[in-house]
C-alpha cells in the first residue's frame, strides 16, 4: 500500500483528506504564521455542510458572523489580506442583510485554496517538517 505521506504529495486535496496530513500541514503553516488559512478553508466547508440542512437559520447567521469576524473583518489578518476586496464586500453585504447564502463563502474559499495550491502546498512538500516526517 502507498504510505500516507506519498499520497499527501499527490494533491492538496489528498493532503486535506487525511487527519495526519492536516496536522502536519498545520504545523508547517503555523511556522509561516498562516495556519488561519487552513482553518478558514475548513470553516467554509463546514458552513456549506450546515447550509445543506433544513432549518437552524439562527445558527447559520451566528456562524457566518463568527467566520466573518475572525477571518475577514480585520484587514491585516492573513486570510483577509489574500481575499479580493469585491469578495469581502459580497460577504459583508450578505451578513448585513442577514442573508446567509450557501455560496456566500465559496469565492473566498476558492481564493484561499488557490493560494495554498500555488504557494503554501508546494512549499510544504519541500519543507523540513514534511521531509523529516518522510
Amino acid at each position: 500500500p502507498t504510505p500516507p505521506y506519498l499520497k499527501w504529495a499527490e494533491s492538496l486535496h489528498s493532503l486535506l483528506d487525511d487527519q495526519d496530513g492536516i496536522q502536519l500541514f498545520r504545523t508547517f503553516l503555523r511556522q509561516e504564521d498562516c495556519a488561519d488559512m487552513l482553518d478558514f478553508w475548513f470553516a467554509c466547508s463546514g458552513f456549506r455542510k450546515l447550509e445543506s440542512h433544513e432549518g437552524n437559520e439562527e445558527k447559520k447567521v451566528k456562524l457566518a458572523k463568527a467566520i466573518y469576524k475572525k477571518y475577514i473583518l480585520d484587514n491585516s489578518g492573513v486570510v483577509s489580506r489574500q481575499i479580493k476586496p469585491a469578495t469581502k464586500s459580497f460577504i459583508k453585504d450578505c451578513i448585513g442583510k442577514l442573508h446567509v447564502d450557501p455560496a456566500m463563502f465559496e469565492q473566498a474559499q476558492t481564493e484561499i485554496q488557490t493560494l495554498m495550491e500555488e504557494n503554501s502546498y508546494p512549499l510544504f512538500l519541500t519543507s523540513d517538517v514534511y521531509l523529516e516526517h518522510t
Binding site: 486535506l16 487527519q19 470553516a43 466547508s45 456562524l63 463568527a66
Partner: peptide
C-alpha cells in the same frame, strides 16, 4: 465570545475527515 469560538471550532471540526 466563547460560544462564537465554540461554534466556529465545531464548524471546522465538522469539515475534517474522520479518522480512518
Amino acid at each position: 465570545i466563547d460560544s462564537e469560538d465554540d461554534l466556529l471550532q465545531e464548524c471546522i471540526s465538522s469539515a475534517m475527515p474522520k479518522k480512518k
